[in-house]
Amino acid sequence: MKRHLTHLSKTILQNSSSKTLPLSRCLSTQEAIERRHHLFTLEKKRQVESVGRIEKIEVRYKGVPKDCTLVMNKDISSPYDCARHLSEWHADSNALALIDGAVHWDMHRPLSENCTLESYSSTEPQAVNKAFWRTCSFLLGAVAARAFKEDVTVKLHSFPGPDIRSGSFIYDVELSLPAWSPAPRELITLSAELVRLCRRGAPLERLEVSEELALEMFVDNSHKAKQIPSIARTNGKVTLYRVEKHVDISKGPLVCHAAQVGRAAVAAVHRIIGNFTIISAVGRLLLDVGLPHRPPVVSVGSGLHPP
């Protein structure tokens, strides 16, 4: 199975033409996920190898326990690596890095220049909040892609920008089920999948790929394939994120790892048009937002089943 997939993706990479399209169209959802994961791995490996000679950069860290200067590898080391030099607590709890006091940078995105690095200040958490909400949507998509049986085709569409005041994060999914309204038990199952994914705490890896490769990756998903050209219009690059084996497009930034999303539950599924199904979920209030400090919050009953 694995060898077959490797072979398949290699041929796709080599040819990158429409010859393989019919082949990949008949992939099941699970196989498509595997294939995307494999392509992501290959591309990441290629990008790391293409760095070539390793150069050093100086990263000036500001914050607890004390300011210091770290010498890191250019285009390889990420803020996460810097945090691991400091302490386990830094690596676990930081959600975003603040580069040069202005840019919000993913923890797993390699640094390319000399810069200052700050861990996130909890007095102005707007950017972290947004990243957190985006991550919730992203993880919901990962759950939706995997939770259904083999015979149900799941096509992820996209997720809207973070709107925290609405209290719910959303992912739009096309399902091949004609009329599906989930029973309460099914919702609980979806919630449990979401919580399990969060608990495993896989890192959210970031990768910028070219438009062609992105199209190859999402060849089985007509919605994503339509979106990619408009996303890549600005600089010809598409930003992808991966959690475990699930690869998806997102503008980013996302938080450091899935375990920073505390507790969340899938609250409702709304059908919009035809076979389109919006799955919207309401995040519960027990959130480990991954700020440097984790304020204690009492979970407030909101009519949801505890996940």
Partner: peptide
Amino acid sequence: YPSLTNKQASNRQLIQNILLDAA
């Protein structure tokens, strides 16, 4: 010295407070 406690209940920008305010 830096503060030992972390009182952020009044920080309206925290995600918990945003959600509570909206509710």
